[in-house]
Structure formats: C-alpha cells, structure tokens
C-alpha cells in the first residue's frame, strides 16, 4: 500500500507550488491512472510517490514505512527490488541487446543468471521472443517500449510506475503497451501508478485521480 500524506511540492524556480496538500492511498494490486493537464503536477506526484523525488513537506509511506526514514542504501535496494519504472522515452541502453537491457536491474544484486529464464519469458510475453538479441536501434518504437516494460518487471516488483508510457507511441502500439500493463496488473497483482493525459488509456486503469493546479480535483 502507498500512502501520500499532505504532500506539498514547490520548486525554487517557480512562485506557486506544484503540488498542494495531496492525500491519496493506493491499495496493493490497484491500477491507478494520474490524469491532468500539462503542468497539473501529475508527473511530479508520481515521481514523489516512486521515491525518485522528495516532497517539500508531507510524507509518502510504503506499507506504513515513511520513505524519508530510509537511508540511501536501503532506498536504492528498495527501488531495485520493489519498484519498476516505465518512462515516456524507453531509456534503453543502446549498447545492450533486448535481453541484456531487461537483465540490467538484476545485475545490481548479481541475479542475472537466476533471472535469465524469467527475462526470456517476459520478452516472449511482450511479443519479442524472436528479438532477444536485437539492439534497441534494430527495434521499432513500440518494441523498444515493450522491452522497457519487460525490464521494469524483471525484478517482479510490487509497484510499477509509468510516466506516459504510451506518450511516444502510435495508437496500435499504445494499445499493446496498455494491454500488457493491464495484464501484469491482473495476473501478477503488480500495483501500477500510471501518468497519462489520454482518457481512453486512463479508463483501462481501475481508478483515475485527476489533478488540477497541483490539487486532487477528482478521484474515481
């Protein structure tokens, strides 16, 4: 469970806060979409929830444990074993093949051998079983994003954060990615928090949280 308590965020460069007194709870296994216009603070909220950013005030708790109470090594370990990320841009390492990219998180804890089978299965599940050894430049944009999803899932994370994962894809590829996220949420029970500005994709999530000017305006 992720709890967001009175989160307030203000950047030094801006006058008005990006987020104001956000309170939210995301239950285990939920698929939540964060929606809002550009500049509404949805991405900032997701990055604060995912431990990559810190709030100016307020707290984020994972299973009642405040993120602020974790020291840096624990936070890194937590990210490695419990959190997966999918960004708008795939951020694949261009020197590595699809399989090597997927296995990259496992190298941190030297599990690349034990998780190789899982990596191959994940790539098969996202429809890239035939392209295990292709370099990112040899894949299409949709395929690259699917490799990024497989990479986010390789450590079998409890939480998956996706920042506009379909933002850079055409509709067909966007549908494929959304279906994959939906399937992993349902089959594996992975808690997913996804930022999107596309209402159609947001509807595939179990719950939508709308942000307007840094505040939760609607939660359905």
């Amino acid at each position: 469970m992720i709890e967001v308590r009175k989160v307030y965020k203000r950047f030094e460069t801006t006058e008005s806060p990006v987020l104001q007194d956000i309170d939210a709870t995301i239950q285990k296994g939920e698929f939540v979409a964060l929606l809002g216009k550009s500049g509404s603070g949805k991405s900032t909220l997701m990055y604060i929830m995912s431990t990559l950013d810190t709030p100016t005030s307020g707290q984020v708790l994972f299973n009642k444990i405040p993120v602020q109470s974790m020291n840096l090594p624990s936070l890194h370990q937590f990210r490695n074993t419990h959190i997966g990320f999918v960004f708008q841009f795939h951020y694949l390492l261009p020197e590595l093949s699809s399989l090597e990219n997927v296995l990259m998180p496992t190298r941190k804890t030297k599990q690349e051998r034990t998780r190789k089978e899982l990596a191959i299965n994940l790539l098969k599940e996202v429809g890239l079983g035939e392209k295990l050894h292709r370099l990112p430049r040899q894949l299409s944009g949709g395929e690259q994003q699917r490799v990024a999803i497989a990479r986010a899932l390789i450590m079998e994370p409890t939480y998956l954060f996706a920042d506009e994962p379909t933002g850079n894809l055409d509709t067909a590829n966007g549908d494929i990615v959304m279906n994959l996220l939906n399937r992993f949420n349902k089959e594996n029970g992975t808690t997913i928090v996804m930022v999107t500005h596309d209402p159609d994709f947001a509807r595939l999530a179990g719950r939508q949280i709308y942000l307007t000017d840094g505040k939760v305006s609607q939660s359905t």
Partner: peptide, 16 residues
C-alpha cells in the same frame, strides 16, 4: 544522461 537516469531508478547508486 537518460541511461544514467534509468540506471539510478533501477537502484544503482552514485558510486556505481
């Protein structure tokens, strides 16, 4: 820079 960002988000530390 992007690769550094993704590596850090995977749990790789500053020293890595």
């Amino acid at each position: 820079r992007r690769e550094i960002a993704i590596l850090r988000s995977m749990g790789y530390e500053q020293n890595d």
